[in-house]
Design a protein around this nucleic acid. Sequence first.
DNA 1: AGAGAACTGAAAGAATAGTTTCATTATTCT
DNA 2: AGAATAATGAAACTATTCTTTCAGTTCTCT
Lengths: 290, 290
Amino acid sequence: MDDANLTIADRIQARLETLTRAERQLAHAILENYPASGLGPIATLAKDADVSTPTVARMVQKLGFKGYPEFQADLREELKAKVSGPIAKHDTWAEGAPEGHMLNRFTEAVIQNIRHSLAQIDTNDFDAACAQLADTSSRLHIVGGRITHTLAEYLFLHMQMIRPEVIHIQSTSNAWPHYLLDVKEGDTFAIFDVRRYESNTLKLAEIAQARGARIILFTDQWRSPIHSLADICFSSRIVVPSAWDSAATTLLLVETVIAAVQDLSWADTKDRMQTLEDMFDQTKLFRKFT
Amino acid sequence: MDDANLTIADRIQARLETLTRAERQLAHAILENYPASGLGPIATLAKDADVSTPTVARMVQKLGFKGYPEFQADLREELKAKVSGPIAKHDTWAEGAPEGHMLNRFTEAVIQNIRHSLAQIDTNDFDAACAQLADTSSRLHIVGGRITHTLAEYLFLHMQMIRPEVIHIQSTSNAWPHYLLDVKEGDTFAIFDVRRYESNTLKLAEIAQARGARIILFTDQWRSPIHSLADICFSSRIVVPSAWDSAATTLLLVETVIAAVQDLSWADTKDRMQTLEDMFDQTKLFRKFT
DNA sequence: AGAGAACTGAAAGAATAGTTTCATTATTCT
DNA sequence: AGAATAATGAAACTATTCTTTCAGTTCTCT
């Protein structure tokens, strides 16, 4: 073979562009659990990828094999060579990129951040925060800063789908005092404040608390001064090999909160989602696409 | 099963003494190229071990499997678990939380998403994209959709600090055609489009390309239809145990791009940063804080 | 050494896996 | 918008793989 020293995974990668929809779906399934998935029967692989068996048969032929059995034989050869070789260690994330490449250094840092941040979370706090965010008997205000308003808005967009009475306040806007007029005892504030803590956000938090609001704070490892006002405080590590900080860990946390809150309120959310879908249909915002 | 956590190799080792001559011969052949040899057809394995196929069939039954296919299925499972590696072994992320807790399930999914997405990135593409984003000789337009405009804005906020001539367009706004008026040959578009691909965003991409712009696309594993218009396409896996998709992997990618671009343009960025700091001082936006 | 038991493999039979055809559906091009 | 083209999966078909039977062989024990 001319491409004998390329792994099958490489060959699939290389041709990924030229593949059709179902074939690409299949390609992903193969790479997902490579090489194990390709070593089972054709029907199992097809089912995993949610395509038909002929699609699998056709693709392996496209890849240059006479048939599925030959494809498997090659996979086994590859596995044999790999196992007898040096122990496969996953020290790079972007395969093919040098170890010192930004992709690998950055990803490694983020994974470490996630690990440390998650290890410090008190599950009870987490559950309590989610319960509070799911509680529709009071309003939910979401506040972000100069950079973090993007995270705030991300949370806002999802909470808005899940429940009513959600308000997004940008503390950097000079209109924020207006929003505080209607704050009632028992309202919830989800506040984002990370390094370069903003004076506006702190003032806002103080006023909100004075008016009887309960605060859930998303901050960094050094914790915004707001933490002393907060009921619940989540701190994420944000340091990466960059001139700026990483929001990835905080976003992970926010997404997890969204998923948990949505689990708690599924009964109510279901109808909202349906209504939303109907409205999307009417506005033709999205392409018809499976 | 009682011996569920033992590998098949262990089980064979343990029973090695009780096996007959032909079976022991077979056992050694299996262990010789473990697990590859066991994943082929029964006849191949028999031939390798120089025994008959019934011997193989009988031994796998002796080992407690219903038949050879079941034995293979177990081998594949073992391989799957092994390949997903030591990082996956970190079975809980939030210590103290039960394994099935949302925090652990969600984080696990995101880590897998990161792993798979990163493995697929072509380093050359990545470097090329960063070079293009750092090129100040043409303008940079950043476009996001209903949810992804938060990511777009995140990129925008940072690129704005790094270089001049950066514009944020929200494709969901009805003012987006206005932005296209001034697009020139050679301009760069960074476009975000993930599942529930938006028709507006596609149209915008088409027009931009027609006007000679080069497109860098951030999309999901199924790839927005825009990918056929894009110069460079980054696809992230976004599926998590939630009713919604995860933007965490895409954000990681965006942050890495930001870090790399900033490295490329540090000479110019330095001055911009200083000016920005001075302005911050004047507006007293931030608290004085070490 | 010889009878009995256990082991082994050839071959047939049963089951499962892989391939191909063809009608349907989606997509592209005019 | 409509015709042509490509892609896809259900189902029929073919090939291979696995299992079982059974007769020959080897080993063990008296």
